Amino acid sequence: MQTHEQFIQEMLKDPAVRAEYERIEREEMPMLDAILNARAEAGLTQAQVAERMGTQAPAVARLENALVTGKHSPSMATLQKYAAALGKRLEVRFI
């Protein structure tokens, strides 16, 4: 039986899988880290952020998860609401 790490290493041998993994690591993980760090700095749970945004906790969980899965890209309006709920503002930069 394979361990999780062995399974990942096996999957990464596929060039398409490796390319997507590297894209997520390069493009999406920094955004997720920024969002999760901002929420941690604010000392808020997903439920508390949701209440401040006028939504439900599962919506906040989906928002945070979307940046990892790439299944859904949150709108700028949603990200602005999230930032405001944390007492922050959204800034988008091209580097």
Rank of each mutant, 00 (worst) to 15 (best):
E64G: 02
Q6P: 01
G43M: 05
R93H: 09
Q48N: 04
T55D: 02
P15S: 11
A38K: 07
M29C: 05
D33F: 12
A61E: 07
A61Q: 12
E91T: 13
A57P: 10
A83W: 06
A16E: 15
G87Y: 08
R26H: 13
R39I: 11
Q6F: 05
A19T: 12
Q48H: 06
P30H: 06
E10T: 15
R26M: 13
P30Y: 06
L12N: 03
M53W: 04
A84P: 00
V60L: 02
T55R: 07
A38G: 03
P74H: 07
N37G: 14
I24A: 11
M31R: 12
E41Y: 01
Q56C: 00
R62H: 14
R62A: 13
D14L: 06
Y21I: 00
L36A: 07
M29L: 15
K81Q: 14
T45D: 05
A59I: 04
A85F: 01
H4S: 06
E27H: 08
A40E: 14
E27T: 09
Q46F: 01
T3I: 12
M11N: 02
L12P: 08
A40P: 00
E91R: 12
E51M: 03
Y21L: 03
G87D: 04
R26P: 02
R93Q: 09
A19S: 11
R52K: 15
Q9E: 15
L44S: 03
T55V: 14
A40L: 12
Y82K: 08
I24P: 00
A50R: 07
A38P: 05
K81Y: 02
I95G: 13
E27W: 07
H4A: 12
L63F: 13
M53I: 08
L12T: 04
V17E: 00
L67H: 14
D14Q: 09
E64I: 12
T45C: 04
T45L: 03
R23Q: 14
R52N: 11
M1Y: 02
E20K: 14
P58V: 08
G43L: 02
A50N: 06
G70C: 04
I95E: 12
R89W: 00
P30F: 09
D33Q: 14
L79E: 01
A83Y: 06
Y82M: 07
A47L: 13
V68S: 11
E27F: 12
